[in-house]
Nucleic acid binder design. Structure first.
Length: 394
DNA sequence: CTAGGGTTAG
């Protein structure tokens, strides 16, 4: 494990970003440049691949800029181009972007296919709009587009995510009667959904069914089950699962590491968390916003706010976008170290970049003020807030 | 090319 002293960290930010920021997108960028140099003309497939990779690794804006680039060189986007962008927008929960892209697609006479609808449906579900998701499903049937097994998986998963666990299980049972064979992803979704809705036992029963029906659990299954353990405070059990996935030779990735590291940070096991995060930094994994957030979380827990900012500055230079978690983690960290003015500034920056309804961040701020005895300021902030929840209340 | 896992307050 690397010895991550405070001094070393300042230098490390740049290294982390240069070595680990989105290796895939960087490779693609290099591939594109190399391809052009040796005289290969990038075609629509090249650009579609780039859009998908940029959306996944960097952000939706990076995807759009590729769209503009391809239009500039006279290559017409196709249904896959738009599907990739819609998927990108869905990844970042940007419903209006999704709908705009859908409209743009229709205006350009590009016919949406099953994946366009699947993704749109998924976006509605992700944003807690099951009724509209269902309407998108009806659209599929109405337009006589042939459904894909993913359509059912998205339906089952969406119902679970929106609190309709029973309906999801019912749907699955009836789909089975019609000959639908649950896939690994179906089981993974169910385990995740059941666990999230507090039904850990039922989740584990589906883990058994998954194995009995001949499927082999993958990294996603393991990460899901591990998260389930941590949720029910079965820390050692979860760590055992992590060890198992490593020992069995399954691909274990940054997802698993971030899960473990966060649990360790939350339970005050900072040194161990440091080891896990040190490992993902030195092992050449390509890191995304969530991984960076987890490292920032570590810095905050250690009170090293300067290093947190340094890292984020470098990450942003590398094209990575902060999200609501980044802001919440920073604001909480600033409050815990008594930097209320900085926290206030961070809240402003957060609102300016479009994360104005980030309750967790505001709650952290108020909580921090209360803990430090600044009750007037806390009350004043509380009254200025438009949206509140049960955590906001003192 | 396009669905599933990971990160924040109390």
């Amino acid at each position: 494990m690397v010895d991550v002293t405070a001094a070393a960290r300042v230098e490390m930010a740049e290294i982390i970003v240069n070595e680990c920021l989105c290796g895939k997108a960087k490779q693609l960028e290099k591939a594109e440049v190399d391809g052009i140099r040796i005289g290969l003309q990038p075609d629509v497939v090249t650009y579609n691949t780039l859009i998908a990779a940029y959306c996944r690794c960097v952000g939706i804006d990076a995807g759009y800029s590729v769209l503009h680039r391809m239009k500039e060189v006279g290559i017409n986007p196709d249904v896959i181009t738009y599907n990739s962008l819609i998927a990108g927008a869905t990844r970042y929960c940007l419903l209006f972007e999704c709908l705009d892209l859908f409209d743009e697609m229709l205006e350009m006479n590009i016919l949406p296919d099953i994946w366009s609808y699947n993704t749109l449906m998924n976006c509605f579900f992700k944003l807690g709009k099951p009724d509209e998701a269902y309407r998108a499903f009806q659209d599929i049937l109405l337009k006589d587009i042939s459904v894909h097994s993913a359509t059912f998986n998205i339906l089952c998963n969406g119902l679970c995510m929106n609190g309709y666990t029973e309906n999801s299980l019912m749907l699955l049972r009836s789909l089975k009667r019609y000959g639908f064979i649950p896939q690994l992803v179906t089981y993974n979704n169910l385990i995740h959904g059941l666990c999230k809705s507090g039904r850990g036992k039922a989740a584990m029963e589906f883990l058994n069914e998954l194995e009995e029906s001949g499927h082999i659990p993958n990294a996603i299954t393991y990460t899901t089950v591990m998260t389930c353990c941590f949720r029910y405070r079965q820390f050692e059990e979860g760590l055992k699962i992590f060890a198992e996935m490593k020992n069995k030779g399954y691909t274990y990735d940054v997802f698993a590491y971030c899960t473990v590291a966060s649990m360790l940070l939350k339970t005050g096991r900072i040194t161990e968390a440091n080891e896990y995060l040190g490992y993902i930094v030195t092992s050449g994994f390509s890191l995304d916003t969530v991984s960076f957030n987890t490292i920032v979380y570590l810095y905050c827990k250690e009170g090293q706010l300067e290093n947190a900012y340094k890292l984020l500055y470098e990450a942003e230079k590398g094209g990575l976008e902060s999200d609501k978690y980044t802001h919440a983690i920073l604001i909480d960290g600033l409050c815990k170290t008594g930097n209320f003015q900085e926290a206030r500034q961070q809240l402003n920056r957060m609102s300016m970049t479009g994360f104005d309804s980030n309750l967790v961040a505001w709650n952290s701020f108020i909580n921090g003020l209360c803990k430090a005895g600044h009750f007037d300021h806390a009350l004043q902030t509380f009254e200025s807030m438009d949206v509140k929840d049960s955590v906001t209340l003192p």
